[in-house]
């Protein structure tokens, strides 16, 4: 089974993010970056499919040079090959999807796994984009996956329940928490990862479809005010709604 896992490099969930001086990008100084947690589920699923069916797992990212660290993490977890589609510019989900599609198009992957979203920009678009660009089925937010021959059966989390979807390989699966329990890389594999090659591919030229105009930190919530139920507090409520909240 020829398996592709798309991975991204995101700020660690415990890091405090600040907006950079341009007001459009995150300030990356002192920020710790990690392999996107949802991609860990995707990679783990890829590794399990390989362990069951044989074949190989390739991990790929669209990113700048710095992202080689998450490819080494992928190698340490067990990926056979890794590649970076290199760009040092800011880019959007469309750009990423076009580049992943280009990479995947002539390599005959049986299955493409991704995290359901990257926890940095949270666009959630890439699995669907990729399906469209490659002309194959794309099943999103999968928490259980079964593959028999070419038949794929995927359980999806939907509002208030589950949905079971079937498709044929080749297809795209985006991973939800619960799909599996990702393994820890073992110490010898961490040490060996540094000597394995990283394939470098130049990004194809493709115009992003969106640009970020502004980025800001959510304002701190104001403390609520609780009024008692007396008649006197009714007047106060009206005054507050009028003068503080300015809604009436």
């Amino acid at each position: 089974m020829n398996i592709l896992v798309c991975v991204s490099r995101v700020p660690d969930t415990t890091t405090r993010i600040l907006v950079g001086p341009d007001g459009k990008t995150a300030d990356k100084t002192g920020v710790k970056f990690v392999l996107n947690p949802f991609d860990e589920f995707a990679l783990e699923e890829g590794l399990r499919l390989r362990e069951k069916n044989g074949g190989s797992v390739t991990a790929v990212t669209v990113a700048g040079e710095v992202a080689k660290d998450i490819l080494r993490t992928s190698l340490a977890m067990g990926a056979d090959k890794v590649a970076i589609i290199k760009t040092e510019n800011e880019f959007d989900s469309y750009f990423t999807a076009q580049n992943l599609a280009e990479f995947a198009s002539n390599r005959a992957f049986d299955i493409i796994l991704l995290g359901k979203q990257s926890i940095d920009y949270d666009s959630l678009q890439i699995p669907a984009y990729l399906g469209e660009l490659l002309g194959i089925p794309s099943i999103g937010v999968v928490s259980k996956l079964q593959i028999e021959g070419n038949n794929v059966s995927a359980e999806r989390d939907i509002e208030g329940g589950k949905e079971i979807v079937s498709a044929q390989l080749p297809c795209i699966i985006s991973a939800q928490k619960g799909l599996n329990e990702p393994r820890y890389p073992k110490l010898p594999d961490i040490m060996k990862a540094k000597s394995k090659p990283i394939e470098e591919v130049a990004a194809i030229d493709c115009q992003p479809r969106t640009t970020i105009l502004e980025m800001s930190i959510p304002s701190k919530k104001r403390a609520g005010v609780i009024l008692d139920g007396s008649d006197g507090s009714l007047d106060k409520l009206v005054t507050l709604l009028h003068e503080e909240a300015k809604v009436i």
């Binding site: 660290d69 340490a76 820890y184 110490l187 961490i190």
Partner: peptide, 10 residues
Amino acid sequence: TEEQVLLRDT
């Protein structure tokens, strides 16, 4: 080094 950071996190 990069692998020492990965090892520590792991």
